[in-house]
Design a binder for these strands. Sequence first.
DNA 1: CGTTTTTGACCGGCGC
DNA 2: GCGCCGGTCAAAAACG
Length: 305
Amino acid sequence: MDSTWVNTSLDLNISPFCKNIDATAPKKESEGDFVDGFEQKLRVKEEASFLVEELTRLSAENKKLTEMLTVLCENYNALQNQFADLMSKNSEKELATSRKRKAEMGINNGTTESSSSDEIDSTEKPKGSIKTKISRVFLRTNPSDTSLVVKDGYQWRKYGQKVTRDNPSPRAYFKCSLAPSCPVKKKVQRSADDPSILVATYEGEHNHMQPELPLGSSHHCSSLAVPIPTATSMRVSGPATATLDLIQAGLLDNAKETVKETEAPAIQEILVQQMASSLTKDPNFTAALSAAISGRFNQTRIEKW
DNA sequence: CGTTTTTGACCGGCGC
DNA sequence: GCGCCGGTCAAAAACG
């Protein structure tokens, strides 16, 4: 486990321009009256060479940052896979106990999970025969906001609401109303642990395109939720409590349809920000790096899925 | 007046 | 078989 962690102590010069330029720039018009043309030329030349040198140094630093980001992403993916493996085992146990399903394949054994999971897929719903893909989205909202609305770009029609046993807050049931034949369903319920977190569970895949968002509602809107295939969820301790949605092996292909490059899911942003904040204490660097990771991370996800 | 939401009834799976 | 529970239906109400 320890081998997957990255040494996050960076020794990078974040704002070289500020320091160096400030040190060389203070002399201006006050002296300008006393220098002749030759000295002015010399000064401009020195400044130019300095800028070129600075540019070269920044380029090298940029390259270094890019490499570190690559390593960071690789390590993150490795860690994510490890966690998914661990939690997929746990979730099977959870499923067996909470839903009290028939223990026909010795699910609690823990040593035969690979073969038993295949059996689940083939025998769980004999009459349906269509394996619906399930994904889950966690969305932080205002706890006082009682509407179970998750903006995900699709149009939903509510067809039911239930108070479940394990959670005091009601669960809302939605169907996709964009296409009559669209089989996708969505369940939205507040987290029992943290009422400020909405948990939206998607079942099935849309058989139509996602509608264009109205002008003005930017794709980068942070409240736009993006479904991510999941086996479970984890709580991350840190500056800001965040809910992560980790990927279960075998469900990855679902994300191809649901994750758009133009959308900036709040979950990813929070995750990325936390990764960046662990790199350095410099707030400027944190902001710059988190922005860079966001772009890089999205790109990585798209390429992978 | 058409569409959406609400909400109690109903249904099926599961455990006892 | 009965009761519990999650999910769905559908009539009524609310809404634009």
